[in-house]
């Protein structure tokens, strides 16, 4: 039933000192659709690819506001994400209430990491199945953090998580040195280009599947501040649906593409084929980015829980 005798629970070390259940939880993150984060010395942005489970379903939310100065993008189990982001909100509110101080971004992330670590050390629990990219700004400037089910946090200049995120990472690694001094529109364009690289061949970024969150002073080049107080104040704001059109157009212009974007015959829901395809992709993608090559091969074999079936049931949970 199990791949080896050391992977059936979260409190058993393998003879190599690995915790397989954590590695498998990291795989759950890769089942979710991609999320990308970048930061300059003035801004931090998140870009996500939303999935829909069918023509009658809405696209699932991937961006969550925590406080005026903090927000997250998620990849993996939506229900776990809601628990953790709710906890972050409580911590943020407590800091405001008790000290009148917006919570330092790193500490907001550390809070959920502590909880995640707990789930890796006590029997009867499972590691969380969701990864976060957290953006925020505090007295030390804008930040981008990654939170993972292992209970670790890392601060990045740019990062990507979720399905096919290695393609985005390749783009980001090639370009990140220019991010520090980039303007907001430039930063977003880089982010959209990276996000675009996570798409399958016949897919495109559309106003339906793209959502963008920003922290930092607004730019009227890409934002309509008359409809967003948060933008006016430089707080966390999300642009999606018709409001993301402007940002997508600006991006296509910058790439010398037709502004209206490629026309798909029918904006088919991605989910019907995506489940299976993604599982394969994510396996291929892990070779380079994961420190645990041992675990990277995990879902490749047919018996991994959700690969192969491609059922839309998985997609409802995995965002």
């Amino acid at each position: 039933m199990f791949r080896n005798s050391y992977d059936s629970d979260n409190v058993t070390f393998s003879p190599q000192g690995k915790l397989h259940q954590i590695d498998y939880a990291l795989e759950a993150v890769k089942q979710g659709s991609a999320a990308i984060g970048l930061r300059s010395k003035t801004h931090a942005v998140l870009l996500t690819l939303k999935r829909s489970t069918g023509e009658l379903a809405t696209y699932q939310k991937k961006l969550i506001r925590i406080d005026d100065h903090v927000g997250v993008a998620i990849a993996g189990l939506m229900s776990d994400a809601r628990v953790l982001s709710n906890f972050m909100r409580q911590q943020a509110m407590q800091s405001r209430m008790l000290y009148g101080r917006p919570i330092p971004v790193g500490r907001a992330v550390q809070g959920i990491s502590g909880r995640a670590q707990n789930n890796t050390q006590q029997y009867g629990r499972r590691p969380y199945g969701v990864g976060f990219l957290v953006i925020g700004r505090d007295e030390t400037g804008p930040h981008l953090f990654e939170f993972s089910p292992a209970g670790t946090t890392f601060e990045y200049y740019a990062h990507s998580i979720g399905a096919r995120s290695q393609s985005a990472k390749t783009y980001l690694e090639k370009n990140f040195e220019s991010f520090e001094n980039a303007s907001l529109p430039e930063l977003i364009n880089h982010g959209l280009s990276a996000l675009h690289d996570t798409l399958q061949q016949d897919k495109f970024l559309t106003i339906q599947n793209t959502s963008i969150a920003i922290i930092g002073p607004s730019s009227d080049e890409v934002e309509d501040i008359s409809i967003s107080g948060a933008a006016k104040r430089g707080n966390f704001r999300v642009w999606e649906n018709e409001h993301v059109d402007r940002l997508l157009r600006a991006w296509r212009r910058s790439r010398g593409e037709p502004e209206d974007g490629p026309q798909e015959a029918a904006p088919a829901p991605e989910a019907t084929t995506e489940g299976g395809a993604e599982a394969t992709d994510s396996t291929a993608a892990t070779g380079g980015d994961s420190s645990s090559t041992e675990a990277a091969s995990a879902p490749a074999s047919g018996d991994a829980p959700s690969s192969g079936t491609g059922g839309s049931g998985d997609d409802v949970e995995m965002q």
Binding site: L98, Y99, G100, R101, P104, G106, R107, E139, T140
Partner: peptide
């Protein structure tokens, strides 16, 4: 102690006052 990790500045006078008031 925590600020060694994240280099965040210490509480401002206003922060301390808010805490005391609470």
């Amino acid at each position: 102690s925590v600020s060694l990790t994240d280099t965040h500045p210490p509480f401002s006078p206003q922060n301390i006052y808010t805490y005391l008031s609470n």
